[in-house]
Simulated scan of single mutants.
Amino acid sequence: MNEDLLFNAAPGGPPRYSHLSHKPVQYLAVADRHGQVIGYAWANDADDAAGWVIRKAGGDKAFNEGSVWAIKLHDAKARGIAPSVALAEMIQESDPTKSSHVVSGSLTEAANADVVRRLANPEYG
């Protein structure tokens, strides 16, 4: 009972986009059915990076509704598509009658993923 536990990383698991990019990223805003932004999806093909950033100010509701968008990114990576294509699919498949949707015309560029994180949560920076 006094021995240290050893944890060895096991290979495998589902494929994931990198969550880091210091290069320019594309991003889009996602809103709830009332038009309140709940988070942002971002992507950078050069780093094979993408992520979902929840607006913490949206609370549990934003977290719950936002999980769908994180899953969309995981599924896109599993299908082997580029991060920017994943964003394009999000836009194309977005439905404003659902609990959350892509804000029309919100696709834009930021200097890097940290800019998007600060946009979602100003206290991040």
Rank of each mutant, 00 (worst) to 15 (best):
residue 56 K to P: 00
residue 56 K to D: 06
residue 56 K to H: 09
residue 56 K to E: 10
residue 57 A to H: 00
residue 57 A to S: 14
residue 57 A to D: 09
residue 57 A to K: 08
residue 57 A to Y: 01
residue 58 G to N: 03
residue 58 G to P: 07
residue 58 G to I: 00
residue 58 G to Y: 03
residue 58 G to V: 01
residue 58 G to K: 08
residue 58 G to H: 09
residue 59 G to T: 01
residue 59 G to Y: 04
residue 59 G to K: 03
residue 59 G to V: 02
residue 59 G to P: 04
residue 59 G to S: 02
residue 60 D to K: 07
residue 60 D to Y: 02
residue 60 D to S: 04
residue 60 D to G: 07
residue 61 K to C: 03
residue 61 K to T: 05
residue 61 K to L: 10
residue 61 K to I: 01
residue 62 A to C: 12
residue 62 A to N: 11
residue 62 A to F: 09
residue 62 A to T: 06
residue 62 A to M: 11
residue 63 F to A: 12
residue 63 F to S: 09
residue 63 F to W: 05
residue 64 N to R: 15
residue 64 N to Y: 12
residue 64 N to V: 03
residue 64 N to S: 11
residue 65 E to Y: 07
residue 65 E to Q: 14
residue 65 E to N: 12
residue 65 E to K: 10
residue 65 E to G: 03
residue 65 E to T: 01
residue 66 G to A: 04
residue 66 G to K: 00
residue 66 G to L: 02
residue 66 G to N: 04
residue 67 S to C: 05
residue 67 S to I: 07
residue 67 S to L: 08
residue 67 S to H: 12
residue 67 S to A: 11
residue 68 V to N: 04
residue 68 V to F: 12
residue 68 V to E: 09
residue 68 V to G: 09
residue 68 V to D: 07
residue 69 W to C: 08
residue 69 W to F: 13
residue 69 W to D: 03
residue 69 W to G: 06
residue 69 W to L: 12
residue 69 W to S: 06
residue 69 W to I: 05
residue 69 W to P: 08
residue 70 A to G: 13
residue 70 A to S: 13
residue 70 A to M: 05
residue 71 I to H: 15
residue 71 I to K: 15
residue 71 I to E: 13
residue 71 I to C: 07
residue 71 I to F: 06
residue 72 K to G: 09
residue 72 K to F: 06
residue 72 K to T: 08
residue 72 K to W: 07
residue 73 L to Y: 02
residue 73 L to V: 02
residue 73 L to S: 05
residue 73 L to W: 03
residue 73 L to F: 05
residue 73 L to A: 06
residue 74 H to E: 11
residue 74 H to N: 14
residue 74 H to Y: 07
residue 74 H to T: 12
residue 74 H to D: 13
residue 75 D to G: 13
residue 75 D to P: 01
residue 75 D to K: 15
residue 76 A to F: 03
residue 76 A to N: 06
residue 76 A to D: 09
residue 76 A to L: 06
residue 76 A to V: 01
residue 76 A to R: 01
residue 77 K to V: 11
residue 77 K to E: 14
residue 77 K to I: 02
residue 77 K to H: 14
residue 78 A to D: 12
residue 78 A to S: 15
residue 78 A to Q: 13
residue 78 A to G: 14
residue 78 A to M: 11
residue 78 A to K: 15
residue 79 R to T: 04
residue 79 R to C: 05
residue 79 R to H: 10
residue 79 R to A: 13
residue 79 R to W: 01
residue 80 G to E: 06
residue 80 G to V: 01
residue 80 G to R: 08
residue 80 G to H: 07
residue 80 G to K: 10
residue 80 G to Y: 02
residue 81 I to A: 10
residue 81 I to C: 07
residue 81 I to T: 08
residue 81 I to M: 13
residue 82 A to T: 00
residue 82 A to F: 01
residue 82 A to E: 12
residue 82 A to W: 00
residue 82 A to I: 00
residue 83 P to T: 02
residue 83 P to Y: 08
residue 83 P to A: 13
residue 84 S to I: 04
residue 84 S to V: 08
residue 84 S to R: 08
residue 84 S to Y: 00
residue 84 S to M: 08
residue 84 S to G: 15
residue 85 V to T: 14
residue 85 V to R: 10
residue 85 V to I: 11
residue 85 V to K: 12
residue 85 V to C: 03
residue 85 V to P: 01
residue 85 V to W: 00
